[in-house]
Every structure is written in C-alpha cells, then in structure tokens.
Simulated assay, not measured.
Amino acid sequence: MKISEAAVAAGLDVSSVRFYERKGLINPDRGEDSNYREYTSEDIDRLKKIVLFRKIDMSIEDIKKVLLENQDITEVLESQMEKLQQDKLQIDSSIQLCQKMMDEGYTDSDTERYISYVYEAESQGQKFPDIMPVLDQISQNSGMEKVIGYPIFLKLMANTLSRRLLSVGIFLVMVIFPLTELVISIFKFLSGNGRLIVIVLWCVYSFLLISIFGKMLGITSKA
C-alpha cells in the first residue's frame, strides 16, 4: 500500500510516517519499476508499535533499541517507567510552584525570591524541570544524520556535550542569524542605504528557518 494508506492504517499522518522513515525506524520497499514506496503489513505493525511506544513518551533512541537492536523490551520499559516517575516529580513541583505564584500574586519584583525558593527546594531533594533537555530534542530532530551519516550522528548523540553544542549551533544559524540580518536590513532601509526587497527576502527566509526550527522542537509538528 502507499504512504497515505499506511498512515491511515497506523493512525498517523503522512508527515509522521516520513519522520519515522528518516529516523530509520521503518524501511519500506521500493518497487523496481516505481518511485513509490510500498508498505507491507509488517511495516504497519511496526508503525503501530512506534505509536504505542510514543504514547508512553519513549524516545526515538529507545524505540530503535527495541525495534532495530532487539534490546529486551522489559528492560526498556522499566527504564522508561523510571523516567516517567522522574517527570512526574518535576511536574508536581512545577504545579506547586505555579500555584504558589498564583496564590501570592507574582510580580516582576518577586522573581529573585521565587528563584531562591526553587534552589532551596532543589537542595532538599525536590525536582524541577531541567531546561537542557530541550537542546537534546533540537539535536535529535535536526535531521543531521542525513548530512553526516548515521554512525557519526549516533556517536554525537551519545555524548551530552556534543548534542548540546550541535543544538546551540543550529539555534544560532536558524534563528539568531536570519533575525539579525532582518534587523540589519530594516535599519539600512530606514537610513536610505537598503532596499525593501531585501527586507522581504529576509522575512521569508527567517520564517522558513524558524518554522523548521519549530518542527525540531515539536512546536509546529508533533510526530
């Protein structure tokens, strides 16, 4: 069957099926006389497993371990349960902090006091969300494996520092750079040294890059 049929059968949209193909989780056959991929019942079964695993927030890396590396599913599920329990502790702490801020009527002048509260709570063992995993998500969804190859990409992803350096580089190139150029072109135009067409082009370019960056974060597309 074609990709649209496979997507319906697995309860996904076409973009999600393509996303999992890019990540190497499925590899449908391509007919000798056709440029279209043909999805088998085995492909659909694998897609449904992916859907199930994603419903428990299992990472793409862990799904690969189960589907491609034949790692024991019980071990992976136990590890995932530990992660979910840690996430729950963080969410509970965030809810408590949010409620405290609402009850006490948070204002800008209270920021330092609440930061101190968080640090004190963390020193006593309470867990709050870490902002750094966002960088991991950017690097994981960057699609850089198509450029540098899977072996090197997987080695980069295995190292925390390299993952986060990659994500920071992507952020600088896809968000900071185009916005900076857009602002510069606007100032040049206002001073009489620039052209309107340049501003329009940078607006379009910035929109495209930031949209792609949003997909990496899962903001504009949830796979």
Rank of each mutant, 00 (worst) to 15 (best):
Glu120Met: 04
Ser123Ile: 06
Gln71Ser: 10
Gln140Tyr: 05
Ile152Arg: 14
Ile138Met: 06
Met157Thr: 05
Arg113Tyr: 10
Arg113Trp: 05
Leu156Ser: 02
Ile95Met: 10
Glu69Ile: 00
Gln124Asp: 10
Gln71Glu: 15
Asp130Ile: 00
Asp110Glu: 11
Glu78Trp: 07
Ser94Arg: 12
Ser162His: 13
Gly149Val: 01
Leu135Gln: 02
Arg113Asn: 12
Val76Gly: 00
Ser93Gln: 00
Asn159Arg: 06
Val118Gln: 04
Ile131Cys: 06
Glu112Gln: 11
Gln99Val: 09
Ser94Asn: 02
Lys88Pro: 00
Asp103Glu: 13
Asp87Arg: 15
Ser93Ala: 14
Gly125Ala: 05
Ala121Arg: 15
Gln124Lys: 14
Glu78Thr: 12
Ser139Gly: 03
Ser123Gln: 09
Asp110Tyr: 07
Cys98Phe: 13
Tyr114His: 04
Glu78Asn: 14
Gln140Phe: 03
Met157Gln: 15
Ser93Pro: 01
Gln71Met: 14
Ser79Tyr: 10
Phe128Asp: 04
Met102Gly: 04
Tyr106Ala: 02
Lys83Glu: 08
Pro133Glu: 08
Asp87Thr: 12
Phe153Asn: 08
Arg163Ala: 02
Ile115Ser: 05
Thr160Met: 06
Asp136Trp: 05
Met132His: 12
Asp72Leu: 07
Lys127Trp: 02
Leu97Met: 13
Gln140Trp: 04
Gly143Ala: 04
Gln126Met: 13
Ile73Phe: 09
Leu84Asn: 10
Asp72Cys: 09
Glu69Asp: 14
Asp136Gln: 00
Lys88Ile: 08
Ile131Met: 07
Val76Met: 08
Ile73Met: 13
Leu89Asp: 12
Gln137Glu: 13
Leu68Met: 08
Leu89His: 11
Leu97Phe: 06
Gln124Trp: 00
Gln71His: 11
Ser142Thr: 01
Tyr119Val: 04
Gly105Met: 07
Val134Asp: 00
Ser123Cys: 07
Asn141Pro: 08
Glu122Lys: 13
Met132Cys: 09
Met144Trp: 10
Tyr106Arg: 01
Ser162Asn: 10
Ser162Cys: 10
Ser142Gly: 03
Glu122Ser: 11
Pro129Lys: 09
Lys88Thr: 04
Pro133Ala: 11
Thr107Tyr: 03
Leu67Met: 03
